[in-house]
């Protein structure tokens, strides 16, 4: 079985115009950086991978994840995690409840709670379970969003300008954290960015579109 994310003759069109055409493999543990000016279709590519492409667009080709054809699966069945520029922590849930929303099913209440506490401790946020996400700093929110996503046991990771909202010092730190985690878990990563430093840090193939 092939592992990793395969974009097989992927072609996205809108009406008669072709927005992008990609044919590439992202092996497990590798990061594909997608760069290009705004409007080039970077976010459209990620929408195609999460299954949230607007109906005006037409998708051809296949998306294969660890041997599974996920091209037509609904978002919730793909096991593809995504981080946006904004943390998008659910404001009506506490930090811990946000993580519990992501955590895969199973386990007793106590076991689930323990897993979440461990994940929080892992990123230096011990004791944050009951906190209101609105009271967290930007870096803390980014770490919660990352751990929430990882607790859902994704098989691939998508980054949509995920570090764009952070100030430079923090940015480097969070970026390193995300890449290290992805590598440890052996996840294929597709990162959309307009910052060359992101692509450099990713240390992987760069795809320029637009």
């Amino acid at each position: 079985m092939t592992t990793g994310l395969t974009l097989k003759s992927l072609r996205i069109t809108r009406g008669e115009t072709e927005l992008l055409a990609i044919d590439t493999d992202v092996p497990s543990g590798a990061v594909l950086s997608v760069m290009g000016p705004s409007g080039a279709g970077k976010s459209t590519l990620l929408a195609a991978l999460t299954g949230t492409l607007a109906p005006a667009f037409h998708l051809q080709g296949r998306v294969i994840l660890n041997g599974r054809d996920i091209t037509n699966l609904p978002t919730e069945a793909r096991r593809v995690g995504i981080l946006f520029q904004d943390d998008l922590l659910f404001p009506h849930l506490s930090v811990g409840q946000n993580m519990a929303f992501g955590l895969t099913k199973g386990g007793t209440r106590a076991e689930r709670r323990a897993k979440i506490e461990t994940a929080l401790t892992d990123v230096g946020l011990e004791g944050f379970f009951e906190r209101d996400p609105a009271t967290l700093s930007g870096g803390q929110k980014a770490r919660v969003a990352l751990m929430r996503m990882l607790l859902s046991a994704p098989e691939a990771l998508l980054l949509d300008e995920a570090f764009g909202g952070l100030d430079p010092a923090l940015r480097e730190h969070i970026r390193a954290l995300v890449f290290t985690r992805a590598r440890t878990l052996n996840l294929p990563v597709v990162m959309v960015t307009h910052d060359p430093a992101d692509a450099e840090a990713a240390d992987g193939p760069i795809l320029k579109i637009g």
Partner: peptide, 22 residues
């Protein structure tokens, strides 16, 4: 912000789950 819905779906939530839980 519909990205909340995308995030929730990507975390494995069904459309009904997104509606009622988020």
């Amino acid at each position: 912000d519909r990205r909340y819905g995308t995030v929730a779906s990507a975390l494995g939530s069904s459309p009904d789950g997104v509606l009622f839980r988020v």
